[in-house]
Design a protein around this nucleic acid. Structure first.
Lengths: 216, 216
DNA sequence: TAGGAACGAGACAGGTCTGTCCAGCCATGC
DNA sequence: GCATGGCTGGACAGACCTGTCTCGTTCCTA
C-alpha cells in the first residue's frame, strides 16, 4: 500500500517535527529524509507552515481513530470506557518516542498561527467531547466531571514529559475512575448507587460551565 | 534598586523567550531590547543556552517564592492551603501574558539539553513536594493524592493554553478539594478530619489579584 | 510514438542565526 | 597623569534558513 507523495512528506515531516521541534527542523532535512526534491515539496505545500498544519491534522485523525477504536471496540459501561481511554493514554506515554503533546508543542512554537491553534483546539475538544459522551447519561453534572477528566488527561501528558517516573498515566486513570464513581454515586435522579457521602456539596454548582467558547 | 546587568539581561530575555519562543528570539533582539552591546551579553553568558537556563532558574525562584508566600502567608488547614495554591494558579492562567508552562515549552524546544530538563524537573518536583507537604499528615495514601493533585495542576496549565474558556483553573481547584475530602474521609487511623462542611475552602480566598504578570 | 505532468538534483538569492573581534568611550583607582 | 576594566557600537565570519528557479529524467496516457 504505497503512500502518496504528499502523505509520505507528511509522515516524514511529522516525525521530524515531533522528535526535534518545528523550528529546529529545516525543509532541507525533510526533503533529505523523505528522499524527494525541494520542488516536489513546494508543489504539494505552499510553505512550511502548511506542512505543519497538515502534520497536525494527520496526527489528529490518527489519534482520534485510535481513541474511538480503543474505547468503543467492545460494548462496555462508562467506567470500562474511561479505563480503556486512559489505558490508551498510558500506552502512548510509555512509547519510546513520546515527547509530549504535539499540539501543545506546536502552539508553543507557533502560537501566532491561527491554523495551528485551530488544529490543536480541534483535537482537544474531541477528547473533551468523548469524555462527555461517555459520562453524560450516568452522572449528575456531567460537564464538570468531563472537564476534570480532561484535566487529568492533559496533566498526565505534561507530567510524563518532565517526571515520567511518577507514573502519571496510572494515577490519572485511578483518579478518573474514582471521580466517576463519586459523580455517579451522588447522582440525584437514578439513585442506583447510594454510598452516602456528604461531599455532594462540593460537586454541585459553582462556576457555571462556560461551554460557549469557539474563539477564533 | 537597579538591577545588575546580568539580571537585566535575564529579565529581558526571559520575557522574550516566554512570549515568542526560544528559537524564535535571536540574541540580536535580546541585546536591542536590553539596550546592551553584544560583547556585554557574551561576557555574562557563554552562549544562548546558558541564558535560557538562567532565565528558567530565575523564573523558578520567582514562582516558588510566590507559591510559598501565597500558601503559607496565613496559618490554615490543608484544604485552605490547597485552595490558596490553586487560586494562585487561577491568577496565573488569567494573566494577559499567559502562554503556558515556560518549563514545558523550554523542554519542548530544547529537550536535548540536560540543563534545561533539569531546571524544569526541579520546579515540577517543587510543586509536587509542596502538595505532599500540605496533605501528608491528613490523609491516607498521601503519595497518590499528591500525584493526582499535581496532575490537576499541570492539566489546568495545559488546558488553559488551548481551551482557556473551559475555566480549567476553577475545575482543577474544585476537583482538588473534592479529592482531598475523599482521601481525608477514608483515612483509616486518626479519623480526626470530618468532611462535614468542606465548602469553606471554596468560598475562602480571593481569586486573582496576584498581579502575576511582569510583562514589562 | 508523442506530449505533458510529476519528479529528482541542485544552484541560487536574500535573509537570519550565533558567536568573535576590534576600536573607542568613560569611570574608577593609584 | 595614567592604567584598568566594563561598556557601546558595529563589522565580520560561517553556517543555516526559506523559497524560487532551471534542467534533465521518468512515467503515464492519448
Amino acid at each position: 500500500m504505497p503512500l502518496s507523495v504528499r502523505e509520505h512528506i507528511i509522515e516524514v515531516a511529522g516525525a521530524l517535527f515531533y522528535s526535534r521541534g518545528i523550528r529546529a527542523v529545516g525543509v532541507d532535512e525533510i526533503i533529505r529524509q523523505a528522499d524527494i526534491a525541494k520542488a516536489t515539496l513546494y508543489r504539494h505545500f505552499r510553505g512550511k507552515e502548511e506542512i505543519v498544519v497538515a502534520c497536525l491534522e494527520a496526527r489528529r485523525a490518527r489519534l482520534e481513530a485510535r481513541f474511538l477504536d480503543g474505547v468503543y471496540r467492545h460494548v462496555l459501561g462508562p467506567p470500562e470506557r474511561l479505563g480503556a481511554a486512559f489505558d490508551l493514554l498510558i500506552g502512548s506515554l510509555s512509547a519510546p518516542d513520546f515527547r509530549g503533546c504535539a499540539f501543545l508543542m506546536a502552539v508553543a512554537e507557533h502560537g501566532d498561527s491561527a491554523a495551528i491553534r485551530s488544529a490543536a483546539r480541534g483535537y482537544k475538544e474531541f477528547i473533551r467531547n468523548q469524555f462527555f459522551a461517555i459520562v453524560r447519561d450516568h452522572v449528575h453534572d456531567p460537564e464538570t466531571l468531563t472537564e476534570q477528566l480532561a484535566l487529568l488527561y492533559e496533566g498526565a501528558i505534561a507530567t510524563a514529559v518532565i517526571r515520567p517516573d511518577a507514573s502519571p498515566g496510572d494515577h490519572a486513570k485511578r483518579c478518573a475512575l474514582l471521580l466517576f464513581s463519586q459523580y455517579a454515586a451522588t447522582r440525584p435522579e437514578g439513585a442506583t448507587v447510594a454510598p452516602a457521602e456528604p461531599n455532594v456539596a462540593i460537586a454541585t454548582p459553582v462556576t457555571g460551565s462556560r461551554r460557549s467558547g469557539r474563539a477564533r
